[in-house]
């Protein structure tokens, strides 16, 4: 047992050192831990928060960022009715075609269409953003060390002025949590950046929380089903294994 414990410690330390290595670059601040309703064994999303987060994304982020793996039909999953989702889709145009004359044409988006990207391709996106590519956001909480905590920290981690002695490159903004602390994105959120209709306080922190929750859902839309199924499956496997253990002991008891 003693040795097993020791081994556990060694492996734990190994895991920790591996995880931290990625943060080590630069003097970037450590990402503070946040509580999220979707964390933990019973984690689930708050539909109201997701819808507010969607509003933040739609009114702010989507000007520069794509969300290519989310279709309008997926909005039903965050609590919109099919008609509401259709109405949202109807606000957008997507390219379709070619038509009978061989031309591409724009038409009103349908539920089956994916969220339209603000730029035609990466090169256009870079060109329009001073060389920096705004990443697609559909997987962003999975694609960044720190996940949702990092996104929240980034949204709230801007300073108007860089600290004294820090040389900022042209057009860059200071952010405590961005690797290297210089980020091309201008602080996207601020108090009352978006007007909520449900009476939720319109603070920077609230906007950041909401949009982070929305992006967490966008990255892991299967999360609720995964955790619910997982609980049932694990309890089942645990009981079955316990029964098998008892049978195993009884069968082997015949040998002695």
């Amino acid at each position: 047992m003693r040795r097993a414990l020791l081994a556990g410690l060694v492996i734990g330390a190994l895991a920790l050192s591996g995880g931290q290595a990625a943060h080590a670059a630069g003097e970037t601040a450590d990402v503070p831990d946040q509580d999220w309703q979707h964390e933990g064994v019973f984690g689930s999303f708050d539909r109201g928060e997701l819808q507010r987060g969607f509003q933040v994304f739609q009114e702010v982020c989507s000007a520069c960022h794509s969300l290519q793996y989310i279709a309008f039909r997926n909005l039903v999953e965050i609590g919109f009715t099919a008609d509401e989702a259709k109405a949202i889709a109807a606000e957008y145009e997507v390219e379709d075609g070619p038509d009978d004359e061989g031309e591409m044409f724009d038409r009103t988006a349908r539920l089956s269409d994916y969220w339209p990207s603000p730029f035609a391709n990466d090169n256009e996106a870079r060109y329009a953003n001073g060389g920096a590519l705004p990443p697609d956001l559909s997987l962003i909480t999975k694609a960044r060390e720190g996940g949702a905590d990092y996104i929240y920290a980034l949204m709230t981690g801007y300073e108007e002025e860089a600290p004294e002695g820090m040389e900022m490159a042209d057009g860059m903004n200071f952010n405590h949590f961005f690797p290297g602390q210089q980020i091309a994105m201008v602080a996207p959120l601020y108090d009352e950046a978006v007007e909520y209709v449900d009476g939720t306080p319109m603070t920077l922190e609230q906007h950041a929380r909401d949009v982070t929750a929305f992006l967490s859902w966008a990255a892991e839309p299967e999360l609720e089903e995964r955790k619910e199924t997982g609980l049932k499956v694990l309890i089942f496997v645990f009981v079955l294994t316990a029964v098998l253990f008892v049978i195993y002991r009884r069968v082997w008891a015949r040998l002695h």
């Binding site: 955790k227 294994t241 098998l244 049978i247 195993y248």
Partner: peptide, 21 residues
Amino acid sequence: TVKDMFGLGVMMFILLLFTFY
């Protein structure tokens, strides 16, 4: 056979713990 079944249960529990959570 019964010992292997028990071992399989333990392994699956660990694998599913990772898979789901």
